[in-house]
Design a protein around this nucleic acid. Structure first.
Lengths: 148, 148
DNA sequence: ATCAGTGCAAACGATTTGCACCTCG
DNA sequence: CGAGGTGCAAATCGTTTGCACTGAT
């Protein structure tokens, strides 16, 4: 819980957790990713980049669970289908518009709740977070659909 | 697509689909449910209520897929974990506050987007729908947490 | 009678677990 | 050195599929 940090490779890492090469890899992949990734996607990227070094998928899952417990990553699911993905918790707070056709994720310029106090509307419920996703069709897919 | 209806058991049902006893059961369970249910939950409830009659889980999945294609149910996933659930499409548009402790779902009194036109903010993206979930702690769980 | 709908069992992908070994601190 | 982390293979879970049969229209 107390997040003392110790600096390795420019990454601040919670005290008590070992900074193993596997964890470094997972962290690095997430850091370089421009979109949320599934455990298997992360596994594949590591395989690709570190050929020969035998990693186990189960390890990736365990690492992601640990990272999540320590608030380092956020576990989410795409709406509609149930794909589970992970992204580095960069402290930013972003929502996305997701294209139903090509699954592209377009970050929304701002959080619509910046000025809204939903807490008041929900009575005796303390809101600690929220998740919002718009869906529809991106420009490219709109045009492709018109032609049919 | 043309949703001609034919009335069976007070339920309006899309033309062309057979109104089998299995489909009736699934529909009934969803109708009586106060919260979204997973395919397996639906299966279990049917088993409980109709002991002896052998239903197959796979059938439930196929029925739910069909229902979804015909807009009769909505397939969703809980945010955070990837549980896939189905609920009857009652035409209402509701968002929920979900308690992180007891998983209770409290419907929000109104859609915060009623007055907001998000379409304009997202540029060339045509929004067809959105999903919003708040999370936090319900009154009961707040109090339980304080005592620790 | 016909064909959509079903049960069954097997296949599948994603995730978890038990256990012996390894390694970071 | 020792607890915590890992690899491996087997287990589990939710979901899908092929096929032969059945029942709603």
């Amino acid at each position: 819980m107390e997040e003392h940090k110790c600096e390795h490779n420019d990454i601040s890492y919670p005290k008590g957790l070992k900074w193993t090469k596997q964890r470094k890899c997972v962290y690095q992949v997430l850091e370089e990713a421009t979109e949320p990734l599934s455990a298997v996607q992360i596994y594949n990227r590591i395989e690709r980049d570190h050929e020969g070094s035998d990693y186990a998928v189960s390890t990736i899952y365990r690492i992601l669970a640990t990272f999540e417990e320590h608030g380092m990553v956020e576990k989410t699911t795409f709406m509609g289908d149930g794909t589970v993905v992970y992204e580095l918790n960069r402290g930013e707070h972003t929502h996305y518009a997701v294209c139903l056709e090509c699954h592209k994720r377009i970050p929304l310029p701002s959080c619509p709740f910046a000025h809204v106090h939903l807490e008041q509307d929900t009575g005796d419920f303390t809101v600690t977070g929220h998740k919002l996703e718009l869906y529809g069709y991106c420009k490219k897919c709109q045009e492709a659909r018109k032609k049919q």
